[in-house]
Amino acid sequence: MINQRFVVSISPHIKNGRTVRRMIVTTIAALAPAALWGFYQFGLDAVALVAVGITAACGTEALISRLAGKSSSLSDGHAVLTGLVLALLVPAGVPFWLVIVGAVMAILVGKMPFGPLGGAPIYPALVGLLIVATSWPNEIKSYVQPTTAPTELKVEGAADAEFPRDAVFIDPSDEAEYKTADLFMGKQVGPIGAISPLLLLLGGLFLILRRVARWQAPFGFLVGMGVAAGIGHALDPGGCASASFHLFTGSAMFGAFFLCTDWSSTPVTPWGMFLFGLIGGGLAVLLRIAGLPYGAVPWAIVIMSLATPIFDRITPTPFGKVASHA
């Protein structure tokens, strides 16, 4: 038996004042404006859902650490982030137990089996979200009318259930009724934290400027969605909404900046990240057109995450490397 005296901790190993904890706190700070906008639009229910999500995630993580006899990893804040992201990705009208089950599943199935940090092959909050979304397809669509939205906005489920999307404006022919500026400013129906493309964009840029996230994946994702939606709209305007509509609704912006930039479930090389985003964005539009019951963007990112090891093989050639004679 090897006596484990020397334990190598998980990366990053360079000490430069940037800790995992600080990176996570930065991410939470970047999410804060969008979350606050959601609270303003959806009221106390949204606040309570987020609180419940965070509490459930932290509680599960603490419990599992205890049962497994490991020291608690709560202080790095990842459980808080997981609970927060999960709660921000559900509509404000969902029942509390749904968020609790989602948070427990995110930690129990999505995170802890792969180690406390940095091992999860799929973004844990997405695991939780998609488990509850497939288990309770009706409850997950409990959209709530926001306070400041124009009154003619439809709440999904009531009007047209034939084309359920993660975006709420379901029927592409209704697009004309919605002003792109309204969508961009966050006057729309949707998941709590994902209704304001403007604030998410600002938060995402903040993340990139603070060098917590890299720009390639979000850029690729937005380009992918834009191009795919543009082609779709040009070919069949009745079946596919325009690019701006796709980019500003549902969890598209949220996905681009906060889900595509996860550390463990996305590629690490620049080209890998860009392609990950590009293909993921195209896939998201396809899934929306195909009428996935819920969550085209989360599903697209999960599917791409599974392909991450392939993208990681795209490595830049080191300078001066000469082809070897194999």
């Binding site: 089950v101 488990i131 509850v132 497939t134």
Partner: peptide, 15 residues
Amino acid sequence: EFLFKFMVDPPGAFV
């Protein structure tokens, strides 16, 4: 029809 549909779905089998 379902309590927690994930469990009777294929991924639930793996879990």
